[in-house]
Computed example of a mutant assay.
Amino acid sequence: MIDDFAKKYLHSDLREIREAVLWKLDGLGEYDIRRPLTSTGTNLLGLVKHLSILESRYFGEVFDRPFPEPLPRWDDAGEHGADMWATEHETRGEVVDRYRRAWEHSDATITALAIDSPGHVPWWPRPDVKLFNILVHMLTETSRHAGHADILREQLDASTGTTAKYAAPQHDATFWEAQCAKIERAAKAAVTGQACARPPVG
Rank of each mutant, 00 (worst) to 15 (best):
A102Q: 01
T160F: 02
I115D: 00
R100H: 09
G81W: 06
Q194R: 14
R144I: 03
V95H: 04
T111R: 14
K182T: 15
D76R: 06
S143W: 02
Q170W: 11
H171R: 15
T163F: 05
D107K: 04
A158T: 07
H137Y: 08
D150G: 02
D83E: 15
T142N: 04
A108S: 13
H145R: 06
H137V: 03
G119Y: 01
Y166I: 12
A149Y: 00
K188F: 14
L131E: 02
R101I: 05
H105I: 08
D157Q: 00
F175V: 03
M84I: 10
A190C: 07
T111H: 12
W103S: 12
A181N: 08
A167Q: 15
E177T: 11
V191A: 14
Q194G: 14
W176E: 03
A190E: 15
T160M: 10
C196H: 14
V96R: 02
N133P: 02
F132Y: 13
C196I: 14
A173R: 10
A102R: 01
Q194H: 12
K165E: 15
E141G: 08
R101H: 09
W124P: 03
A164L: 10
V121D: 02
I134F: 02
L156Y: 00
A168G: 11
K165V: 10
V129M: 06
E184N: 12
R126F: 06
H89Q: 12
I110G: 00
W176I: 04
D83K: 09
A181T: 14
V191G: 06
I151D: 05
L135D: 00
G93Q: 11
A178N: 09
R92F: 03
E94K: 07
L152N: 00
R185W: 11
A178T: 12
R98G: 03
Q155M: 11
I115V: 08
E94H: 07
S106R: 01
A158M: 09
R185D: 14
T87P: 00
T142Q: 04
I115T: 01
E104D: 14
C196M: 12
I183S: 06
W103Q: 10
G147M: 02
H120V: 07
G81T: 05
R126D: 15
Y166H: 13
G119S: 07
A149K: 01
I115L: 10
L139I: 02
A186N: 10
A187C: 09
G81C: 05
A86F: 04
A149I: 04
K130A: 11
Q155G: 01
Y99F: 15
E154K: 00
G119F: 01
A168S: 13
H80G: 04
D107I: 04
M84R: 15
H145C: 08
A190G: 08
A186D: 11
I110P: 00
V129D: 08
H148W: 05
R185H: 09
W176A: 01
W103C: 13
K165W: 10
K188D: 15
D83W: 09
D107G: 05
D97K: 10
T160E: 03
Y99W: 15
A189C: 08
A112I: 03
A77C: 02
A186R: 12
A108D: 11
G81D: 07
A158C: 04
R153E: 01
A178K: 12
S117N: 08
A195T: 12
L131Q: 04
S143Q: 08
T87H: 01
S117T: 12
